[in-house]
Every structure is written in C-alpha cells, then in structure tokens.
C-alpha cells in the first residue's frame, strides 16, 4: 500500500498530508513532483491544499495543465483512489475529475476556522469509518470554497449519493446545498474543502479527520 502526495509549485499542505500518512497512520508515502510525466506505483493519490501557481488566473486552472495531471486523470479513470483537499479539490474540478466549480466565499474574505460537517454517505472508500449522519469538527481555510453547480448537476449529485460532507449548522462560504465535499460517480475520487490533515491529531484539537485516512487504508487493505 503506497500513498503519493502531488506537489505543485505553491502547494503548501503537501507536507501536512505527508506527515499524517507517514507519522499518524504510519503508511508508506512519497512526494510526486508535478513535472513528472510518469506516475509510479501508488494506491492512493492526494492532491493537497495550497496556492498552486499562486491561484493566479483561477484556483487550480494552471495546475491542471501540469504534466502529472494527465497521469492523475488516467489513474482515477482506471479506478485509483484520489483525494483532493482544498486547492486540491479546486484542481480536480478544473481537471474535470469532479463536477461543478468554486466561487469566492460569500463574505469575499479568506476564512480559516473549525467548522462542523455532517457525514452524508459512509458507503465510499473514504468514509467507511464514520457513522452516517455523524457531526464532525474539521477546519476550513480558503478564499474560494463557495461550491456551485447547475440544477441538473446538483440533482445528479443528490441522486447518486455523491454529496459526502455538508456544512452543519452554519454554512461558512455560501456553498450550494451546504456542500463541503463530493465524490465522482464511481466513488473513487473525493474532493473536499475542509482539511482532514489538520484534524487528525489530538494536539491540534480534533481527530475528526483521521477516519478518512483510516477508511482509505481499510478499503485498500480489503482490496
């Protein structure tokens, strides 16, 4: 079992993800440089948060043209597990691996704080260690997390159980239908704005993000 963390210029949560995989759930993990044209053998890819290419033009819009993204798309299309967190989610949207788009937060500010999420679907490789309907505390940190999709797309998401996390209580950024995280139709690609890697250790005030990584390990172990 091996994890890969994709590193773009401007990624800044890459080492946080690496730390959780390596030191908290103690699994093999490697960084993958965005200029690589070939992907090695990985079981799960993490596209981390940050400001790839400075978020210039539009969040994720330049990163999706990095050579490695072709490999990431092939990997996902062949059923590999991919998780995009924050900027990683934005990149997956730009790359077409997930549907929808991000608008600026409703209040037009960057928001960094713990929020409450409701786990909507536990029948995925990423969420089996949660209880359905469980309320968890995981922080957000973004400027563009206001998820948007057209009516038809939203119906699709709802129909296929693709909405994995919803903001609970307060919607911090104006996201449509309180959407905080979604999967693709095949349920092997997850995108989420909140940062599970920032809430996987007691010292950081919450371990509510940890089940995501544990779910992946369990799923890969059974495979």
């Amino acid at each position: 079992m091996k994890f890969g963390v994709v590193v773009f210029p401007g990624s800044n949560c890459d080492s946080d993800c690496y730390h959780v995989i390596s030191d908290v759930i103690k699994q093999p993990v490697e960084y993958i440089w965005h200029k690589n044209k070939k992907l090695g053998n990985y079981d799960c890819l993490i596209v981390p948060g940050g400001f790839s290419y400075g978020d210039y033009l539009r969040c994720g819009a330049i990163a999706r043209f990095s050579p490695i993204m072709k490999e990431v798309i092939d990997f996902a299309n062949s059923g590999g597990l991919v998780i995009g967190i924050c900027n990683g989610f934005q990149i997956l949207l730009e790359a077409g691996l997930l549907p929808g788009a991000m608008l600026r937060n409703k209040n037009l500010h960057f928001i960094c704080r713990f929020v409450k999420l409701k786990v909507e679907n536990t029948n995925t490789p990423f969420t089996s260690k949660y209880d359905r309907g469980q309320i968890v505390r995981i922080p957000i940190a973004h400027n563009e997390g206001n998820y948007f999709i057209d009516d038809e797309g939203l119906k699709e998401l709802q129909k296929n159980d693709q909405i994995i996390f919803r903001y609970h209580g307060e919607n911090p950024n104006g996201a449509l239908d309180n959407i905080a995280g979604i999967v693709n139709k095949k349920h092997n690609v997850l995108g989420m704005m909140p940062h599970p890697e920032r809430s996987s250790e007691k010292e950081l005030g919450s371990e509510d993000g940890l089940p995501i990584f544990k779910s992946i390990v369990a799923w890969l172990g059974e495979k």
């Binding site: 730390h19 960094c112 940190a141 010292e203 950081l204």
Partner: peptide, 27 residues
C-alpha cells in the same frame, strides 16, 4: 482579523489565536 489568516497550515498550531499566546509544537 485572524480568521482571514491561515493560522493552522503546517499543522503545528496547538493553541489557536485568541488566547494569551500562540503555542506551536515542533514535530
């Protein structure tokens, strides 16, 4: 003010802004 700043990246902030001092761990 401080919620406009990313105060958690690098996952070392063990006492968040708003207390008497910020406390950071060293992994």
């Amino acid at each position: 003010i401080y919620e406009q700043y990313d105060h958690m990246v690098q996952t070392n902030t063990c006492v968040l802004p708003g207390s008497d001092a910020a406390v950071l761990r060293v992994k």
